[in-house]
Design a protein around this nucleic acid. Structure first.
Length: 728
DNA sequence: TCTATCACCATTTTT
DNA sequence: TGGTGATAGA
């Protein structure tokens, strides 16, 4: 195939990146909308067609299943042929693949299952309870966060020292117990997929060499989002003759809070030396006005490699700024504009409402519903994460692997079958005493007739049902097995007898699960056959469910306004974008204001949001906002003021006036008693010292302020009496 | 075992 | 405000 026409369509830097020498390690700093996926895809096509690299010698890694799929189809389209043997997937998906293939070497049971974060949290919660620890001192979520962060940094519990801190010491102990529990139950969490496949490669020379020599090229998308394990994993896969091609944008690093490590970009230049660095700065998405605004905003960050986006698609309209009196009015304004644009011919699906936190979506939804504008909210529970679906799948998990305590706990009395807390406690005790799984303990209790007649019968009934199910599953196809399961376990009947709307929805979801199984068998079943067939396809189905939890609600509307968090918007683009809730304390969030690194991440988030817009960009905020039941007053986000005045115009409902945005002056030591307060403002108090306003309630003389003082903690003060001084 | 009530909490999220 | 999880009582 002749690829030169493809190269012709690229700009200078893109072409340079695509046609770098085969053996070059490359770092492509690709600004928003600069065609990074295109470069990635064309590079692979170029390697295959011009350099005769076999597709099986390529490895492409992404973060989401969606981008993995997109990459695959784009290459296939480019080459007009299906791809065989090429590894394209997410870090987790590829780690999973390695571990399934080499389960013995990785010291895993063949039927190991994957935990999603919800499963993980349940296990941790149970361990904390079992250890009789105070949940307020070791909140399960924080422990979960602690464990995941440690794993992402490649630290097992045994690698950690307590640093003399009791709380940490206890966390490490829980971590230890969690590891034991997972190992016994044959369970891996998401972080394990990375960590254990990393260890597999590290400790097994044969396997490492095998893959190192297999892959001639490794391509990585969204490199700025990699965490330490992922980076180490990449390094291990890179052999003497492997070249690595990474694409990323430090300005779009918005996942630092979950372990992503932008520094990996610098590490890359050091560890993969020599590295060819190419900057892609020409943007094919937005007007210059939008780009200039975004450039000016991000220039306020200190920590960046530096990059300036430009475009040749003209200046376009000015950004618009609207400050509403409250969040209801803000929503009203946004929907007004949506309708205006729609009348001018823009489709709903070309418009997006972005916000910092998902809780903000409600007001917009209500307004959109009231005015009959179709919309879709991204985020929220996805199909395979729904409780009823996970219940059903837990039965499958327990069938495949009776050692899976997490699955056992989930379904033992669900639907209720008379196995109550007491019975369960004895089973847990028995398991502890004999160091066996809950399942084995239950078997033992039935054999030994440990329980009184009623409990005994209930438990026996459960075990017998599971035996019957195991039979069925071995004999049937996947969808039939799932359907039988739903009936045998009573899950179906449970919702059938309830007449509520939610029960109805759950029934529909369960029915959908059967079709998902059918679909899965059609798509994947052909690849699996033989004696191992049944458990193998079950395993594959369960892993698929966890790794690719599926979309949220199905699209009811074809053409609808898109509502999503700023994080969720990364990678997308829309002609018309509203960034809403741009207030100090909300965006940037109050947790980020006092920490420069966090504030810079918020600013990058804003940059991501702004660069989603192709033609029109609105920045909105409200003077007052109802949140968690009370009113917050806030001044406009500093990010609005960081947009140069000549690029933005302020909207007044009676027509628009050019630029009456009140620039916040930094008032030092002026008395503040008569001025407005807003969250995020730093103040000084005669007695309490310096602090930050968390929240303001009421106004005028009755205004009350919730202030976090560095020395004395949180206090509520009357604004009119406190005699506060503003601090810069 | 079910349900009513209360306390508590509260970015961002993919895998 | 509203959703969740724990607990008490029928």
């Amino acid at each position: 195939m002749d690829v030169s026409p493809l190269l012709d369509q690229l700009n200078e830097s893109q072409r340079q990146a695509v046609s770098l020498p085969d053996d070059a390690n490359a770092l492509i700093l690709a600004g928003a909308g600069s065609g990074k996926t295109r470069v990635l895809v064309q590079r692979m096509a170029w390697l295959m067609s011009m350099r005769h690299c076999s597709s099986s010698r390529l490895l492409a890694v992404t973060f989401t299943n969606k981008s993995a799929r997109e990459m695959r189809t784009r290459i296939e389209n480019l080459l007009s042929a299906p791809l065989h043997g090429m590894w394209v997937g997410t870090f987790h998906g590829l780690g999973h693949r390695l571990l399934r293939q080499h389960w013995q070497e990785a010291n895993l049971p063949q039927n190991f299952q994957i935990l999603d974060s919800d499963d993980q949290l349940r296990i941790i919660r149970r361990l904390i309870k079992a250890a009789k620890l105070d949940e307020s001192r070791w909140p399960p979520r924080q422990v979960q966060w602690f464990i995941n962060a440690r794993k992402d940094a490649m630290q097992r519990s045994t690698d950690l020292s307590n640093e003399g801190d009791d709380t940490v010491e206890q966390m490490i102990r829980i971590y230890r117990q969690y590891e034991i529990e997972c190992q016994k139950s044959g369970l891996l969490d998401f972080a394990d997929l990375l960590f254990r496949s990393y260890q597999l490669l590290k400790n097994n020379d044969t396997i490492r060499t095998l893959y190192q020599s297999r892959f001639a090229h490794i391509m990585v998308d969204e490199f700025q989002d990699t965490n330490p394990v992922q980076y180490a994993w990449l390094k291990l896969l890179t052999g003497e003759h492997t070249s690595v091609f990474v694409v990323g944008d430090d300005d779009q690093s918005i996942y630092g809070w979950r372990g992503a490590c932008v520094e990996n970009i610098q590490h890359f230049e050091r560890d993969f030396h020599p590295v060819h660095t190419v900057r892609l700065e020409q943007n094919y998405r937005s007007t210059n006005t939008i780009l200039n605004a975004a450039n000016a905003l991000i220039a306020n960050n200190q920590q960046r490699l530096g990059k300036n986006l430009w475009s040749d698609s003209g200046e376009g309209d000015l950004l618009r700024y609207y400050r509403a009196t409250n969040e209801l009015e803000e929503a009203g304004f946004v929907v007004d504009r949506i309708l205006q644009h729609q009348q001018q011919g823009l489709k709903y699906e070309q418009m997006a409402i972005l916000y910092r936190s998902n809780a903000q979506s409600r007001v917009f939804e209500e307004n959109l519903i009231a005015r009959r504008v179709p919309y879709r909210v991204y985020g929220g529970l996805r199909f395979f994460e729904r409780a009823e679906i996970k219940d059903a799948l837990s039965y499958l998990r327990l069938l495949i692997n009776p050692q899976d305590n997490a699955a056992f706990e989930r379904i033992i009395n669900n639907p209720t079958r008379g196995i109550g807390q007491r019975t369960l406690d004895s089973i847990r005790n028995q398991a502890k005493m004999s160091d066996s799984s809950l399942w084995d303990a239950a078997l033992f209790c039935v054999e030994q007739q440990t329980f009184a007649a009623r409990a005994h019968k209930a438990l026996q009934g459960f075990l017998q049902m599971m035996d019957r199910l195991r039979q069925h599953v071995a004999e049937k196809t996947l969808p039939d097995a799932v359907e039988t399961l739903l009936h045998e376990t009573g899950l179906w009947a449970l919702y059938k007898k309830q007449l509520t709307e939610t029960a109805q929805a759950k029934l529909e979801n369960l029915a959908e699960l059967v079709s998902a199984a059918r679909q899965f068998e059609i798509e994947e079943g052909g690849l699996i056959s033989g004696d191992e067939g049944v458990s193998e396809i079950l395993n594959a189905f369960l892993s698929h469910a966890v790794l690719e939890a599926g979309e949220g609600q199905a699209d009811t509307w074809d053409d609808c306004v898109q509502l999503m968090s700023l994080h969720a918007a990364k990678g997308l683009e829309f002609p018309l974008v509203f960034i809403t809730g741009m207030e100090e304390g909300l965006f940037p969030g109050h947790r980020s204001i006092s920490e420069p690194a966090k504030l810079e991440e918020e600013r990058r988030l804003c940059y991501v949001g702004m660069t989603r817009a192709e033609q029109w960009l609105y920045l909105c905020c409200a003077e007052r906002r109802r949140l968690y039941g009370n009113e917050f007053y806030a001044r406009p986000s500093r990010f609005i003021q960081e947009v140069p005045e000549n690029l933005i115009e302020s909207v007044r409902l009676t027509g628009s006036v050019r630029r009456p945005i009140t620039r916040q002056k930094t008032v030092t030591n002026s008395s503040a008693s008569t001025q407005g307060f807003s969250s995020g403002q730093r103040v000084s108090h005669q007695k309490f010292g310096e602090g930050t306003i968390l929240n303001a309630e009421g106004s005028g003389n009755s205004q009350r302020l919730h202030i976090n003082f560095a020395n004395v903690g949180n206090k509520w003060l009357m604004a009119s009496l406190a005699n506060l001084q503003f601090l810069p």
